[in-house]
Design a protein around this nucleic acid. Structure first.
Lengths: 340, 340
DNA sequence: CGAGTTACTGGAAACGCTGCCAGTTGGCCG
DNA sequence: CGGCCAACTGGCAGCGTTTCCAGTAACTCG
């Protein structure tokens, strides 16, 4: 069970076995110049034979860089975040960085994360995914001297970031509904109750679009709820209790839309004949449920974020703000209103 | 932008500022005995004021333990894995461990992971999630001297592990279908093409249940496909092309079932009137789509796995194999066959 | 053939911490 | 009042690297 008497070999061991000096062994292994081919060959051979790998801790202690990047996410079991992390991971891994994952699920986690800063001195950089960083938290983060900070999937003007234009995505959704002739459009506004409230471009787009179309907005048609299927379902139930039903629903995300769709159908109404519905994200299940939506490429956001970070770490001159496009995917949940 | 002249404070700085020796400062900060209350107080105060934190690299170099655990997953954007990692993370974090995430998406990633063993010397333990480890890979892993290895979500008799009993879960699903009176039951068998083929308990359960019920199994009723909605959809299409349709479908996972459901409906058939369908997992969307399924508690598997690992790391006497229960959740996709 | 390269090589010092051991107190007992 | 013990304290020696510098050998050129 525990045959731990076998000590891991150190660089000194390898040097001795190869009959060279410490410095030479180090240079040989790292591919630095000033090592004769023969010597290098010998060192590499010995190292290979003994399955030697450098101790990252020792190496990092000396070099000062950790070779690690922290990724902070508020959720993980949601498609969006999994996809994002996959994108980030792929780039980081290729660049030889390790990825330290921190999950700050609720407000308490979040608070303790920024208070304790567990990533302190453990990483060269931090990627914050999908939530805005508050001023106080920002200051704590600054404490991580030298650590670069990059944000993904949310607007954070303070840091270099990659995201989509929520206002534009919302406008595309609303534009589609308006173009179909809808005038009585409801919105299911999704917020994350565990994160501080932020002004949402997706909400702004709703009001702006209505305004531009000279439609007086009816406050009763806007319902705010937490993110999620069940929440979307409940929100829709509320909408269906209205005296005058909307002819279309603009949901802040596909998941919310999924819930709403169920409620609509359970109420005996048809989609899109009685009510149209549109989401945002193009969640994998959107195609399954034939949901019209606004597609965003989440994985690509992850990839670009990681690449941006690498550039920053290399002190390259790089673009510090990238906004990815979104586009409408029409499926079968939207149509012109019946009396339109 | 780069005000990096500010050097991080070292323990020596703190000791000097507090007017104590190096050893005393170290003991004071770590809560070790043999420090007078007054001295400790002073040291803590100075450290606090200067936002000092120990350099984990230096500390670990000396102590030999890294305080990190590697988690290896084949997917991330799938609900199952996100949920699992969330469970693992919550426990690890609380115990003060950091979580290094490795994503081995395809065979190539997987191969290079086990060949390069990037986690080597970087972690105290490894958690392998959701896939079996082959013998050759196992041997590579053993190289990580002293690193504990634990498996979650797949059967790996070689390592301590937490999982569900796939055979039993499958039996529960088949039992339900049989109890409803179905005799012509199809199976959509899902495999991960990127992972080596493994004997699946879920498949075995199918044949066993049929056998126990004295039903001759029809090879045409078993279709094998990759994991995923679209794949389930295609597999179902194949099933629908049969001369004599099945009255029920047993899908290896909810996601596969989702795809199959769409195909069934698109073909103009009704669920469950024309065809019943059951899945396994209780994916969040199962409730949405009213899918009858076998529920497993994935997050709990993650939690238990991490706890088991912590026990191992502490050299506790612990249970080295945990099998979690599963249970049937009847929703609206299963009913007795019409001519039953 | 001597001086000045160039191409390598070895090893000491340092990175920031922890473990250890040898002090240095002060108090207590006989 | 001397000796002894307990309670603290200081600082040295590593941990396994990398970095740097001094050294050696071989080679070139006038």
């Amino acid at each position: 069970m525990d045959s731990e008497q076998e000590r891991e070999l150190t660089l000194a061991d390898i040097a001795r076995l190869a009959g060279v000096g410490l410095g030479t062994a180090s240079r040989a292994l790292r591919g630095l110049p000033n090592v004769s081919p023969a010597t290098r060959q010998k060192v590499l051979e010995v190292a290979e034979r003994h399955d030697y790998v450098v101790s990252p801790d020792a190496s990092q202690l000396k070099k000062g860089a950790t070779g690690r990047v922290a990724v902070v996410v508020p959720h993980l079991s949601r498609w969006f975040f999994g996809e994002m992390v996959e994108g980030i991971e792929s780039v980081l891994r290729q660049a030889g960085y390790d990825l330290l994952l921190y999950h700050v699920g609720n407000l308490q986690d979040r608070q303790s994360f920024f208070e304790l800063l567990p990533a302190r001195r453990k990483v060269d950089a931090v990627i914050v995914v999908g939530f805005p960083v508050e001023e106080a938290e920002r200051q704590r983060l600054e404490l991580m001297l030298g650590a670069q900070i990059v944000a993904a999937g949310g607007q954070h003007e303070v840091y270099p970031h990659v995201c989509i234009d929520d206002l534009k995505a919302g406008s595309q959704a609303m534009g589609h509904l308006l173009a179909l002739g809808h005038r009585r459009i409801a919105m299911i506004e999704a917020i994350d109750p565990e994160q501080p409230r932020q002004p949402s471009g997706r909400s702004a787009a709703y009001h702006m679009a209505l305004n531009d179309a000279d439609i007086e907005s009816d406050p009763a048609l806007v319902v705010t709820t937490a993110w999620g299927i069940e929440q979307g379902s409940t929100a829709m139930a509320h909408l269906l209790s209205l005296a005058e039903l909307p002819t279309a629903v603009y949901a802040h995300s596909d998941e919310v839309a999924f819930g709403a769709m169920r409620t609509i159908r359970d109420a005996g109404l048809r989609i899109p004949e009685d009510i149209s519905i549109i989401g945002i994200d193009d969640h994998p299940h959107a195609a399954l449920l034939h949901l019209t939506t606004i597609k965003q490429d989440v994985r690509r956001q992850g990839v670009l974020t990681a690449q941006m970070l690498l550039g920053l770490l290399r002190h390259d001159e790089i673009e510090r703000s990238i906004t990815l496009g979104t586009h409408l995917i029409v499926r079968r949940t939207t149509a012109s209103p019946r009396n339109g």
